[in-house]
Design a protein around this nucleic acid. Sequence first.
DNA 1: TATGAATGAGTCTTCATTCAT
DNA 2: CATGAATGAAGACTCATTCAT
Lengths: 209, 209, 209, 209
Amino acid sequence: MTKIDGRVVRAERKRRERREKVLQAATKVFSEKGYHASSIADILEVAGIARGTFYLYFESKRAIFDELLDKLLAHLMEKVCKVDVTPGALAPRAQLSAIVRHVLATLVDNRELTRILLREAIGIDAEFDAKLKEFYDRVLGLLMSALQTGQEIGLVRPVDEHLTAYCILGSVKELADHTLVQAGGATSIDLDLLTETALEFNLNGLLQR
Amino acid sequence: MTKIDGRVVRAERKRRERREKVLQAATKVFSEKGYHASSIADILEVAGIARGTFYLYFESKRAIFDELLDKLLAHLMEKVCKVDVTPGALAPRAQLSAIVRHVLATLVDNRELTRILLREAIGIDAEFDAKLKEFYDRVLGLLMSALQTGQEIGLVRPVDEHLTAYCILGSVKELADHTLVQAGGATSIDLDLLTETALEFNLNGLLQR
Amino acid sequence: MTKIDGRVVRAERKRRERREKVLQAATKVFSEKGYHASSIADILEVAGIARGTFYLYFESKRAIFDELLDKLLAHLMEKVCKVDVTPGALAPRAQLSAIVRHVLATLVDNRELTRILLREAIGIDAEFDAKLKEFYDRVLGLLMSALQTGQEIGLVRPVDEHLTAYCILGSVKELADHTLVQAGGATSIDLDLLTETALEFNLNGLLQR
Amino acid sequence: MTKIDGRVVRAERKRRERREKVLQAATKVFSEKGYHASSIADILEVAGIARGTFYLYFESKRAIFDELLDKLLAHLMEKVCKVDVTPGALAPRAQLSAIVRHVLATLVDNRELTRILLREAIGIDAEFDAKLKEFYDRVLGLLMSALQTGQEIGLVRPVDEHLTAYCILGSVKELADHTLVQAGGATSIDLDLLTETALEFNLNGLLQR
DNA sequence: TATGAATGAGTCTTCATTCAT
DNA sequence: CATGAATGAAGACTCATTCAT
C-alpha cells in the first residue's frame, strides 16, 4: 500500500506542478496582453501544452483568470488587519508600516499578477467586478475603522472617513501601479522607500510644518 | 451660390448632430457595459441608426471609443496648469483648489465618460494604454514640478517627488471613482466637500498636529 | 409610401426566399448525412452562403432542424381528423382512404423530410423526443378513438385499442420508410397502390376469407 | 504446463468477464442517453474502469455499439425461419405464433438493447445503416416468402408481397417500441396478449366479419 | 494488463466590418 | 447619404483516441 500511496502522492504532486505551469503561463500572457486580448491559444503556446490539456486543469479561460486573482487577493489580505490600539501593543505607526510593507512586498513579489489586478481585472464581467468590489470594500472597511479609531484616540484629525479612505487606497494603488506595472520588469525596487513614502504621504501630507 | 452654401452648411450641421447622437449613444453603452462587452449593435440600437451609417461617421468601434476619451481628456487638461508662485499671484492653495475643483467638476459633469476613463479604458490595447499614459504623465509632470517648486519655496516638506506625485494622482482618481462611478447615477454630489477633502488630505495628511 | 412599401415587400420576399434556400440546403444535408453527422459547414456549402449568414436566419443547427420537422408535422396533421360517422357523412372507408392518401402524399412530396422524420429525428435530445412523442400521441389518439367508434358501431371487431393503434401506426410508418426512404430518390411511386395496400392490410389483414 | 494452462484459462475467463462488464455498462448508457449523447466517459464511469482499459477491450465507441447490436440481432434471428407447410408440420398459425413469441420474448428480455435497436441505432453512419438494412431485409425476405407460400396454398388473400411485408414488420416494430421502450422499465408485460394482438391484427385486420 | 494524462481535430457561435442597393 | 444583408476571421470548448508509466 505504501508503494501505491507513494505513487499517488507523486502523481498528485506532478498534477499540481503541471497546474502551476499553466497558471504561470496564464499569468504571463494575461499580464502582457490583457484578459480580452489573450486567447487560450496564447496560453497553450507559452505553457507548451495542447488544447485539451488546458481543460483538464481549468474549466475555462475565465476560471483560470479567477484563480489567478483569488490567489493574489488572498495573499494581500493575509496580514492586513485592524490596528491594535490596546495598551502594550506596538505603536500604531509601526503596525501600519508593517501592513503597508506586506502589501507592497506581496505586489512586488507578484508583479505580473499586480499588473493584472490593477490593469486587466476591470470590465471582465459583472460577477468579477463584484468580487473585486468586495475585496476593495473590505480594505476600505479596515481603513475607515482605523480612521475612526485614530480620531477617537486623538491621533487623527477630524476627516470624512469615507472619502479619506478612498484617498488612502488610491494613493497606494497608484504608487504600486506606477512603480511595479509601468516600470519594466527589470527595475529593482526600494521597498523601504516605497513604504515610507506612502506612509508619510498619508500621515503627514505634503506641507511643511 | 448662397443657396447652395446654405444647404451645405445645413448639411454640415446635420452631419455633426448625427455624429453627436452616435457619440452620446456610444458613451451610454460603453459606460454601462464596458468596451469589450459593448457591441456595435448595442450602440446602433441606442443611436437609432443602421449598421452602415455608423461606419459613415466613425472608422471603427475602437475609433469612436478613442474620440470619446480624447474629448474628456482635453476638457480635463483645459485648466490644469502650473501653479503660479510669482509675487502678486493668487495664493498657491487657492490655485490648487481651483484646479482640483475644475477637474472634479469636469468629471461630475461627465459621469459616464468618467466611468469609461477610470474603469473601461484599461486593457484596450497597447496604443490606447500609451495615450492614457501620456495623459497621466502630463498630469504627473505638473504635479512633480509643483512639488519641486513647493519645496523650493519651503512650502512643501522634502519628499520624493516622483512617488509622491503618484500618491496625489491616485488619491484623486480613487476619490472620483468611488464618488462618481460606484455611486449610482442619481446621487447628488457635494463638489466643495470633495475638493476640500482631497486638498486637505493631500496637503495635511491624516495626523492631528 | 407605396414606393417604400413596395421595397419593403420585395425585401421581405427576398428574405423569405433566402431563408427557404437555407432550409432547402439543410433538408438535403440532414437527409443525406443525418443530424449528428451534418455540420453547419455542410449546410453553408450547399446553400452557398457564409457562416455568419446562417446565423442571420437561424439561431442554431438545432433550431433549423426543429423548423424543418415542424413544417412537415404540421402538413401531416392538416387533414388528419376524426372519422365522421354521423348519418349522411361519407362512408368511413372513403374517409380513411382520404386521410391515408393525404398522409402518404405529403410524405411523397417531402421525401427528404420524411427520411429525416423517420430516420434522423430520433435521439437528438430529450426535448425533441418529447415533441415527436407528442405528435405520435396525437396520431395514436385519433386512431384509438376511431377504433372505439368502429367497435361501437359494430364495424370493427373487438380489439385492444392501444396495442392495435400502435400496429396501425407502425404499418404505415414502415410502408413509408421502405417506399420513400430506402428506395433512392428517383423511384416513381404509385400512391394509389400504396394507399390501397395500407388500408386493405389494416382493415382486412392477410387471411383469405 | 497444466499449471500455465490453468492460469491462461483463468485469465481468459477474467478477460471475458471484464468485457462483459463493459458491454453491460455500454448497454445501460447507450439505452439511456442514445449513441451520440453517450460519451466514453459515461461508459467508463458505469463500468468502473479506466479510459485506457476500454480500448484494451474495444476498438472504439462505434465498435462496442456494433457488438451490442450484433448480439441482439443474432438472438432475434435464432428461431426466425421459414414456415413449414409440408404435410405433417405444425399448423402455420402455430408456427407463426411461435416465431412472433420468440421475437417479442427476446425483445422483452433485452429491453435496453431493444431501445437501442429501435431508437438509437438509426443515423449512426452509412455502414451501420447497411447492417441494419441487411437484417431487416432478411426478415422481410422471410415474410415475403411466407406471404407467397400463403397465397399459393390459398391461405393468404392476394396482396402485394413487398408492401405487405413492410406493413407486418412495421406493426411488430411499433408494438415493441411502444410496449417495451416507451413504457418505463418497470412495467410488466403480457407476452401472450402481445403475441396474440400482433398475430390477430396481421392475420385478420380490423374489420368485423 | 491497467491506468489516466495528454492530445488535437472538429464544431459551434459571435461580431466587427464591408458593400450592393 | 442611409441601409442592413452578407461576410469570414477568430475564438472557446468537447471528446474520441493514444501512449508513457
